[in-house]
Design a binder for these strands. Structure first.
Lengths: 138, 138
DNA sequence: ACAGACCATGGACCATTGTCAATGGTTTTG
DNA sequence: CAAAACCATTGACAATGGTCCATGGTCTGT
């Protein structure tokens, strides 16, 4: 499909697609038959773009995602590196999710505090870390 | 405490603390007694910095965090706005966590695929979205 | 055939989130 | 007391993740 269709389906801008392509995250090839220089993207590019969104939400950089999407394909034998890399990323994402969970709790406590005692909505923030046994410190 | 101590305790750089302060995320006042222009930070700034880290991991921008940390304190009566704002942020964080969870699954499947059949570690990526009933599309 | 929508390429531009360097003063410590 | 470590302020620099613009070609509907 052409870039506009892909952009619409994946709900990203054409420019974003081109940006990702420049960074090796997705690929296309020129429509040789048509000879107009237009690029053709495979159907699964939609899926790829959605995975990229998820990866970004998980806090990974474009560079990381490129490694995962691309370098993994080119496993010549350094699967050790790939495994280690994946393990590191998995840990990172887990850590980030735990932090996000803590923050979500805080937001919710703040919201309820605000609903029940509007005069000091900051109490939840002030007592952050108390009341939830989740925090694993250092 | 002074900036260096805070930086050490919260494990961020002095410059980061100053950056946050310029953006209204944390506050200090000049040590009037000493008269040397040094700034003094309250003890709970350590906690504040940790909350900021969590919030960032949850995907919030400095501007958002500033709103939550600061504007909430100044509830003059527009608690409606504050509630709505919190609700929006809570939803955002939830969405991001779900995305992160999806991506984490993908990473783990990729890892196992790589361990068991090194010749095509990309299979997990290719079948992304299949096999996990989590995805709520559009 | 002509307007309006689409495409490519290249480079400029932007916001966000810091980091670093320069300059000059203060405190601590051996 | 002198060096090392700390502090403040200002402003430049940098990486990341896009977005926008200019230019020029192509396609599609009427």
């Amino acid at each position: 499909m052409r870039i506009g269709e892909l952009a619409k389906k994946a709900e990203v801008s054409r420019d974003t697609i081109r940006f990702y392509e420049r960074h090796g995250l997705i690929h296309s090839d020129v429509d040789a038959a048509a000879g107009n220089g237009y690029r053709i993207y495979p159907e699964d590019a939609v899926l790829t773009l959605e995975v990229i969104k998820d990866a970004q939400a998980a806090g990974l950089s474009i560079a990381d995602i490129t490694l995962i999407m691309g370098q993994l394909a080119a496993q010549t034998a350094e699967d050790f590196d790939a495994q280690a890399f994946l393990d590191r990323k998995i840990e990172e994402v887990n850590a980030r999710m735990q932090a996000a969970r803590r923050f979500l709790d805080l937001l919710e406590r703040t919201k309820h505090a605000l609903a029940h005692a509007p005069q000091d909505g900051l109490d939840a923030l002030k007592e952050a870390g108390a009341g939830n046994g989740n925090r694993t410190r250092n």
